[in-house]
């Protein structure tokens, strides 16, 4: 990291610290009733208390589990379906209109349908999360597969590569930057939908914790949960970026 990068990093932390200070100031001056807005000190204390009692750990684990299962299911299905559609221009023409109809559909509209069919269950949550998270992955995969350099398919033909080998050695790696970008977008969608499902279906997780804390006017606990959700989003997205950076090292060489 060079000097300028370090200075930017320090500056960005300073801005974040500034926001926390303003928050503390507003809380101290009681501009908002402490019933609704705890200061960062109380939120932090609630976070620590939650962790030491173990309650927050299990809620965090619940949310991470919903998110991970839904996201993985969406990734596997999204890449598989996207690969099938993307590798054939005929399929793209046939399927594209249906996709265009389904894609902008708000996932929240699917939730009542899912609850009617699957009940207030983990399966319902998994379905909703996967349904919401599949779109960025699938569309990115379709695009990635459609954009494979035709010359490479000719190379594959002249090498008489099998269909499977063409998919795994040519098409998938070629589409991987698109696919990984789609997976990163879906990660956020999966987190949002995990919280929504926990709130609606009362499933064990941070969403449920936040809801119960709000209803009981335990604002410090509520904020502890929100902070933890924010951290979850941040950490998973950073981890995804690191994985992308690693997997796409060849692209760094290209620039």
């Amino acid at each position: 990291m060079n000097r300028a990068a370090i200075i930017w990093r320090v500056a960005s932390f300073a801005v974040a610290a500034g926001f926390v200070a303003i928050w503390q100031l507003i809380a101290n001056l009681k501009l908002v009733s402490p019933v609704f807005l705890p200061g960062p000190d109380r939120a932090w204390a609630a976070l620590m208390r939650g962790f030491s009692s173990g309650d927050l750990w299990s809620k965090l684990a619940g949310t991470l589990e919903h998110m991970a299962y839904g996201w993985l299911a969406a990734s596997i299905a999204g890449i598989a379906i996207g690969a099938i559609i993307g590798s054939s221009s005929r399929m793209r023409t046939y399927v594209a209109p249906s996709l265009e109809f389904l894609r902008p559909l708000p996932v929240s509209a699917i939730i009542p349908v899912a609850i009617a069919m699957l009940g207030l269950t983990q399966a319902m949550a998994l379905f909703v999360i996967a349904f919401g998270a599949i779109w960025p992955i699938m569309l990115a995969t379709i695009h990635g597969f459609a954009a494979v350099e035709p010359r490479l398919y000719e190379v594959a033909r002249s090498l008489q590569m099998s269909r499977l080998a063409v998919i795994f050695k040519i098409a998938l790696p070629s589409a991987s930057p698109d696919i990984l970008a789609g997976m990163r977008l879906s990660l956020t969608v999966a987190l949002i939908l995990s919280v929504v499902c926990e709130i609606l279906a009362g499933l064990d997780g941070l969403g449920h914790w936040v809801l119960l804390s709000a209803r009981a006017f335990r604002s410090a606990d509520l904020f502890a949960g929100v902070i933890l959700l924010g951290l979850t989003g941040y950490v998973t997205s950073v981890a995804m970026s690191l994985a992308e950076h690693r997997l796409l090292a060849w692209q760094a060489a290209q620039r």
Partner: peptide, 20 residues
Amino acid sequence: EPRREIAIVFQDYGKALLPW
């Protein structure tokens, strides 16, 4: 169909190589 004992050297080497 193409066969492995016939190799093709394309002009656009940049497109014919796997960048990854």
